[in-house]
Simulated assay, not measured.
Amino acid sequence: MSPDDTTDDEQTDATDGEAVDVETEDTEDGGEAVEVTVEDDGSVRDRLEEEADRAVEEFDDRLVDLLAWVLDTETRARIYVHLRQHPHSTSEEIAEGTGLYPSTVREALAELHEEEKVTRRKRESGGAGNNPYEYSAMAPSDLVSDVVDDVQEQLNTVFNLDSHLGESEDETEEPVTISVEDASEDGEE
């Protein structure tokens, strides 16, 4: 073959449906140069979108796990996430959106409302009939603040346990204090 001879082969990758154009050319030094052109029909984009969807789903699962620890159960965590995404939802809307049983949702909402982690108000409607409650979840920063307060209270109990049992030699009870500072406040000084 002379240096100017070229051959063109077009192949289709059976697994991805991509058209592959392979062009080879002899070089002056006796070697061979290969140029490959791939025409993508969207399968790479589809794979990237699938991976992105999987990553988001894993993030959501981890977030629910963390919230389940904070809110005591996965059910309450799922309700909290739904309410953050869809404020002013009724118990029926929450049950439909989370896939939980309506009775389970109502019970969890009653507990969360009693603990002041969700608020509720009567839904206003123009017609006569039943106006159900609609719920909204507290801000995540308030939720974290409540958790810090609970941990601080538990630590105070543990550290002062001897004095509560009457076995303490030192009668001074100093509470444990946990300070949580907003990162935005540090930059303002």
Rank of each mutant, 00 (worst) to 15 (best):
E167I: 11
S184D: 14
S179E: 15
E171R: 12
V176Q: 00
G187K: 13
V180Y: 03
T157N: 06
S184E: 15
H164V: 11
N160G: 06
A183Q: 11
D186K: 14
E181N: 13
E181C: 08
L165W: 03
N160C: 03
S179I: 14
E181I: 15
E185G: 01
E169M: 03
S163C: 07
E185N: 06
E171T: 11
T172K: 10
D182P: 00
E174D: 07
S184A: 15
F159W: 07
D186L: 12
E171D: 13
E174A: 06
T157W: 04
G166F: 02
D170N: 09
D162T: 06
V158P: 00
V176D: 00
G187R: 14
D162M: 10
T177K: 08
E167K: 11
F159S: 05
T172P: 00
I178S: 01
S163R: 14
P175F: 10
T157I: 08
S163W: 05
V180D: 00
E173K: 08
H164C: 07
E169N: 09
S168G: 05
D162A: 15
S184P: 01
N160E: 02
S179G: 12
E174M: 10
G166C: 01
V176Y: 01
D182W: 04
T177G: 03
G187T: 15
F159M: 09
V158W: 04
E181M: 14
G187Q: 14
E171W: 05
E174N: 05
E185I: 04
S179W: 13
P175Q: 12
V158Q: 03
S179P: 02
T157K: 05
T157P: 01
D170L: 03
A183S: 14
F159R: 03
H164P: 03
G166R: 01
E169P: 00
S179Q: 13
D162V: 05
S163M: 07
E173D: 09
T172M: 08
P175Y: 08
S184F: 12
E169Q: 08
V180K: 04
E174F: 07
F159K: 02
E185C: 01
A183K: 13
E171Q: 13
P175H: 11
V180C: 00
A183F: 12
N160F: 01
H164T: 12
V180T: 10
E181R: 15
S179H: 15
E174R: 07
E181K: 14
E167H: 09
T157V: 06
T177I: 12
S184M: 11
D186V: 13
